[in-house]
Amino acid sequence: MDKIPMTSHGFEELKEELRRRQQEERPRIIAAISEARAHGDLSENAEYHAAKESQSLNEGRIAELEDLTTRAEVIDVSKMSGDRIKFGATVKLVDEDTDEERTYQIVGDQEADVKKGRISISSPIARALIGKGEGDTVEVAAPGGAKSYEILELRWG
C-alpha cells in the first residue's frame, strides 16, 4: 500500500470533506430517497433515480476519501528547510520568455490547485524543479512547447 504525500493543510481539507459527506450529505440523500420512494412507482420515478445516483456518487467519494486519509503521509512543511527544492517548498519563478513571475507550492496530487498556486509533485514543472536551488534555470516540457524558468526564490512554510 503506497503512502500518499500531502501537507497538513491538504490532509485537514480531506478530513473535513469526509466528515461533511458522512454527517451531512449521507443523511440528506437518505431523506431524499425516502421521500421519493413515498411517491409510488419506482420504475418511473425520476426523483428516486436521481437520489440513488447521488447516493452512489457520494458513497464512492467517501470510500475514496477514507482510502486517501488512511494512506496519507502528512508532511509538516513548517519544519522543513534547505536550499534545494523538494516536496512542500514554495518557489517563485520567472518565465524567461515573458518575464512573468509565478509562485507555486509543491504539494500532493490530491491538494493541487494551480489557481491557488499549488502544483502537484507529479506535474512536469514540479518534477523539473525538484533538487534545484535559487538562481538555477529549468526547462519544462509543456503541452505548448518547452518553457524555461529561472528560480528566483525558495521558501518554506
Rank of each mutant, 00 (worst) to 15 (best):
D99H: 06
D95K: 02
V107D: 01
R102N: 06
S81C: 00
I106Y: 06
E101S: 10
S56Q: 15
T98M: 09
S54A: 09
F87A: 02
I62V: 13
Q55G: 12
V94H: 06
E101K: 13
N58E: 03
D99I: 00
S56E: 15
V77K: 09
Q55V: 00
A51M: 06
D97V: 04
R71S: 07
T90V: 12
K92G: 03
R84L: 13
D67V: 00
S81L: 00
E96F: 00
R71Y: 10
L57T: 12
K79Q: 13
Y104V: 05
D99S: 09
G108V: 00
E59R: 15
R61G: 11
K79G: 12
Q105K: 06
V94Q: 05
E53D: 14
I75G: 04
F87G: 01
E64C: 00
D67F: 05
T98A: 09
F87E: 03
N58M: 10
A89Y: 04
D97W: 03
A72N: 10
D99E: 09
I85R: 01
Q105L: 07
V94S: 04
E100R: 07
I85G: 01
D95C: 07
T98D: 07
K52R: 14
E96M: 15
D67P: 00
Q105F: 05
T69A: 09
I85S: 04
S56M: 12
S56T: 13
D95M: 09
L57R: 15
I106L: 10
E53R: 03
E96L: 15
D97T: 05
K92H: 10
H49F: 12
T103W: 11
D83H: 13
E59W: 12
R102E: 11
T103L: 08
Y104N: 02
T70Q: 11
A50P: 07
I62Q: 05
A50H: 13
K86T: 05
R71H: 14
L93E: 04
A63G: 13
R84T: 15
A51V: 03
A72Q: 11
A63D: 15
L65Q: 11
A63K: 15
H49V: 08
R71L: 03
A50N: 14
R102V: 12
I106N: 00
T98H: 11
D99M: 08
T70A: 08
D97C: 02
D97S: 07
S54D: 11
E73G: 10
